[in-house]
Nucleic acid binder design. Structure first.
Lengths: 196, 196
DNA sequence: CATTAATTTCAAAAATCCTTGAAAGTTCGG
DNA sequence: CCGAACTTTCAAGGATTTTTGAAATTAATG
């Protein structure tokens, strides 16, 4: 299981994120590999990971490939060494943003397509009418969240942090804004919808 | 597979959410059951679901039990009928909020505990110092998101919608607020941290 | 309190997903 | 172009997770 070269703390961290990964659509192995690469103080090559986590070499190779497909790894080469060294981005925000964006592309966007198709189907029975309303409600919510995320992604870590700290107080701010806008005569700019 | 009593559209919807479910830590079956209950125009009992989706009766029973543990179902009884009839909440926002909150409790809170424990471990080597910084960065981000979500959950569907439409523009609003506050002399109220 | 209708449990079978080692592929220096 | 140093592919085997049917349980009714 655990290699001699990992501290108990590191192992606990890695192990936990392996478990979490397996609940989030990536395998245990891939979760552990990323946790290891994330905490490592130095970039790691595939063999390092093989030894530290005692997985088979091919398993590590596939895991790294998957992590790359999620755009979660940076890598570098060294003069006189053909092996690729991997590390995670320094900024945790960037990691979460990438992860969320990749899930958005892989899961949310296709879901919106399916819903859009379903919404175009003819409604013959009264039940169909009801299905339509239910699917429309779901489409609206997912579509809005999707647009919101794309929008929010542009913000810097600092601005995001500030907004999060604002939390539910933002609501008051919003009301204040609306009062202000009604004074200045400005109008809202954004309406959410996606091309079919 | 598909029962005679489900329209193609309904089936497509149900099937897709089964697939999505399996990528989100719930089984295909449970995803399909919820999709069916969600679009149904009338509350369904376990046998209805068994026939419509052609799963075994016990599979449906277990699926319903799991969905109840996620607090995603409403149920009712009818006079002269001993069977329990299930339906999903009318409001999609409520469904998403419940889902997110349940994941927060089941995954985010335990993750914060593990991280907190790891952060308390003694740091003996320079690597340990680095692990600590990395885990702290992750803890800070997750903890802040957790607090933010708890906070945001209080808002009504309307306020949430308004905030989402505001999206990245909120940033400007925030800056405007800061300028205003510096004039009025008010201070920020909320700091995020959770008791150990 | 026996009967019947409904639900739940549970261990085995089925299906899916993960891991591995062997073999094939790639890339570089000479 | 060869061989060394790595990496990737792939089919088989192993694990884990899902699904099922039979049996047990619960609850209401005459």
């Amino acid at each position: 299981m655990q290699s001699e070269n990992l501290s108990d703390t590191a192992w606990r961290f890695i192990h936990h994120f392996g478990e979490m990964g397996s609940r989030w659509g990536i395998s245990r192995t891939v979760g552990q590999i990323y946790a290891l690469v994330y905490i490592s103080h130095v970039p790691l090559n595939a063999d390092d990971i093989t030894h530290l986590l005692s997985f088979s070499r091919s398993n590590v190779s596939m895991g790294l490939k998957e992590l790359q497909s999620w755009r979660l790894l940076r890598s570098e080469f060294r003069p006189g060494d053909r092996r690729e060294y991997f590390k995670a981005p320094d900024d945790v925000w960037e990691i979460f943003r990438t992860l969320a964006d990749e899930r958005r592309r892989r899961e949310v966007v296709p879901t919106l397509s399916v819903l859009r198709e379903c919404l175009l189907d003819p409604k013959v029975t009264p039940e169909d009418e009801h299905f339509h309303r239910r699917m429309q409600a779901m489409y609206d919510l997912i579509s809005m969240s999707n647009e919101w995320f794309i929008d929010i992604q542009k913000l810097s870590a600092e601005d995001l942090t500030a907004l999060m700290h604002l939390g539910a107080h933002a609501q008051k701010l919003l009301h204040a804004k609306n009062r202000l806008l009604s004074l200045t005569g400005l109008t809202k700019t954004n309406e959410t919808d996606e091309a079919p």
